[in-house]
């Protein structure tokens, strides 16, 4: 029997998988936003139902910043840079979606072996979803061309880690949580600025073509 939180977590992981199969950058950002909103709503569920998770206002801050603010910012960046599609560098996009399904299955076995989540699927569902999100984010970063996709991949990974934190520990101490959030926001901002600069200097934001510094 899946609880509400686990169902939401699984849904977030599934949206992550869809994101990995998305060639259009803007759609990927939308899917990221949905996935983040789901992750953040889990924090709500924990704080409301179990009184063990982070406080409601923290969850609200997370939702506002990550599920609304960052997608808006990324959407603005994408519009300004006029990039649309990221066709993928090493794996065709549909295939990378199926690889992430395989990684989802792998996450299940990893999660079952993690202590405190023994046996049933329902117990391992939260951990499965979070590990799968980490994998999906990593895969997204590695198999995409655009700098902006790397940011999205990083954020997805961070979502997975946050979800794992929620699931395993019911939330880190508040001040740490806020610090992490601040760091992530700053990282996205700085990365956004650098993406603009890459576009200006290189006329593209294809990181697989940033090879000026490779060892001769």
């Amino acid at each position: 029997m899946l609880g509400l939180a686990e169902t939401l977590a699984t849904a977030a992981a599934i949206f992550g998988i869809f994101m990995s199969g998305c060639r259009h950058v803007r759609s990927a950002i939308y899917l990221y936003a949905v996935q983040t909103a789901l992750v953040a709503s889990i924090a709500f569920v924990y704080s409301a139902s179990e009184h063990t998770g982070p406080a409601l206002n923290i969850s609200l801050a997370v939702v506002l910043a990550k599920a609304v603010g960052i997608p808006f910012f990324l959407g603005w960046v994408v519009k300004r840079l006029d990039v649309r599609t990221d066709s993928g560098a090493f794996l065709p996009v549909p295939l990378s979606m199926h690889v992430s399904i395989a990684l989802f299955a792998t996450s299940y076995y990893l999660a079952s072996s993690l202590d405190g989540a023994a046996g049933t699927f329902s117990a391992a569902a939260g951990a499965t979803a979070s590990i799968s999100l980490v994998f999906t984010g990593l895969l997204f970063m590695m198999t995409r061309r655009l700098a902006i996709s790397q940011i999205i991949g990083f954020l997805t990974m961070e979502n997975g880690i946050y979800l794992l934190g929620l699931h395993e520990t019911r939330g880190m101490p508040v001040i740490v949580e806020m610090g992490v959030l601040l760091d992530v926001l700053a990282a996205v901002m700085i990365a956004g600025v650098i993406v603009f600069r890459i576009k200006k200097n290189f006329k593209h934001i294809d990181v697989t073509r940033l090879t000026g510094l490779n060892e001769q």
């Binding site: 869809f18 199926h98 399904i101 989802f104 299955a105």
Partner: peptide
């Protein structure tokens, strides 16, 4: 790619 989305849903259902 569109077909892949349908396939992904089915695969997830199977999973």
């Amino acid at each position: 790619e569109f077909v892949a989305y349908g396939l992904t849903m089915s695969l997830l259902a199977l999973l």
